[in-house]
């Protein structure tokens, strides 16, 4: 398992993350897979809500907001993007 892999919740706004594992089980795992949170896919951290949580991610050209509880269980590696 990659050591440089970080949870999505810790990624800086504007960065692009290549997902490598999703530590969620059950229905939520299925929902996340359906939405495109699939290992190997690249996700962009777009915007934090005014109160800091949830965070909006761009995945497959759509914008999906996840709470910290969920995004902290999705891991990936920084692959680029313009961190602000």
């Amino acid at each position: 398992m990659s050591t440089s892999s970080i949870p999505l919740s810790d990624a800086a706004t504007g960065s692009q993350i290549c997902l490598d594992r999703i530590e969620v089980q059950g229905v939520l795992r299925r929902r996340l897979l359906d939405l495109g949170f699939v290992p190997g896919n690249i996700v962009e951290v777009v915007q934090k809500s005014p109160l800091g949580d949830p965070i909006a991610f761009r995945v497959n050209h759509t914008m999906i907001a996840l709470r910290k509880e969920e995004s902290s269980l999705i891991f990936g590696e920084y692959v680029g993007g313009d961190s602000l």
Binding site: V24, R31, L32, L35, P54, M63, A65, R67, E69, E70
Partner: peptide, 9 residues
């Protein structure tokens, strides 16, 4: 609270 995902169209 249960999980939730919200699409911003």
């Amino acid at each position: 609270p249960t999980h939730y995902t919200l699409e911003l169209p």
